[in-house]
Each structure stands twice: as structure tokens, then as C-alpha cells.
């Protein structure tokens, strides 16, 4: 097995590898993702127009509702099938965030409520919170300095 270099082998296996069906995958992701957002829009309309909640709070309630749905579908064992079908379509909406928190919480239940459920809950979603909050604080600090100089 000395007659093939690592580089030659990489070319060989990449050429033999089944091609990802990009257009079909994108279409699935587009449709499922769009549909999830439309459901969110429907809840938002119900909260603002029917229940008369203010825009800011209605947005929060909408997020929380979508997170609940994502969590419930994960618990019922449906969200992983949606994810396998839709890929990015169910990953990017906030329901996917809920899925990434709830799935390890379920998975590690056997290790107990403290070391399992609670400790493992953010193994996948942790980076999103860390980078989201950190970046908003860093950018916020820059915003604060710039605002001080300009005013």
C-alpha cells in the first residue's frame, strides 16, 4: 500500500463519493424553513391582533411558543425525522435551537437529573449562547464608546 500518496487517495475517494444532491436539499430546506417561519408569523398575528399584546412582548411570546413546539416535537421523537429530511430548514429556525437543547437533555437522562439532564443540556446549544451573548456585549461596548465620542 505504498503506491498511492495521501493526496492521490483524497482525489480518488472524493471522485468516487456519492454527490450531495444540493438542489433537492436546498429546496427541502427552503420549504420546511419557510413553513416554520410562517407558523411563527401566524402566532405573532394571533398575539398582536386577536389578544392585543404589544409588538415587543408578542415577539417574545412567539419565540417562546415556537421553542415549546420544537421541544415537544423533540420529546415526541418527531423532530429528528424532520431534521433528517429538511437539514438547514429545521436547523436554523428557533425550533432547531430548542431541539439542540432538548435532545441531549433526553439522551442523558440515564445519568441522572443533575449530571445528566441539567449538566448535558447545553452541550450542543452552549456555543450559540456563549458567542451570541459575548458578541452582543463586545459590540455593545464598542457602541457605547462610539456613542460617547459622538455625543
Amino acid at each position: 500500500m505504498k503506491d498511492i500518496s495521501n493526496k492521490e487517495y483524497k482525489e480518488l475517494y472524493e471522485q468516487k463519493r456519492p454527490k450531495a444532491k444540493l438542489s433537492t436539499n436546498c429546496l427541502k430546506a427552503f420549504c420546511v424553513g419557510g413553513l416554520i417561519c410562517m407558523i411563527a408569523q401566524a402566532f405573532n398575528d394571533i398575539y398582536t391582533k386577536v389578544l392585543g399584546i404589544g409588538a415587543v412582548n408578542a415577539a417574545s411570546f412567539t419565540s417562546i411558543t415556537m421553542i415549546f413546539l420544537g421541544a415537544l416535537l423533540t420529546g415526541l421523537g418527531i423532530y429528528d425525522d424532520i431534521g433528517r429530511f429538511a437539514g438547514g430548514g429545521s436547523l436554523v429556525p428557533i425550533t432547531g435551537f430548542a431541539n439542540s437543547v432538548v435532545s441531549p437533555a433526553l439522551e442523558f437522562k440515564k445519568e441522572g437529573l443533575i449530571f445528566g439532564v441539567a449538566a448535558k443540556m447545553f452541550v450542543i446549544a452552549g456555543p450559540v449562547i456563549v458567542y451570541g451573548l459575548s458578541s452582543s456585549m463586545i459590540v455593545g461596548f464598542i457602541y457605547y464608546i462610539v456613542r460617547m465620542i459622538l455625543l
Partner: peptide
């Protein structure tokens, strides 16, 4: 919403 998801799919 669909476009944001399709971009993620392309990146994946």
C-alpha cells in the same frame, strides 16, 4: 425564512 435556511443548507 426559506432563504436563511437554504443558505445554511448550502454551507452544510
Amino acid at each position: 425564512g426559506g432563504i436563511f435556511c437554504a443558505i445554511a443548507q448550502i454551507l452544510l
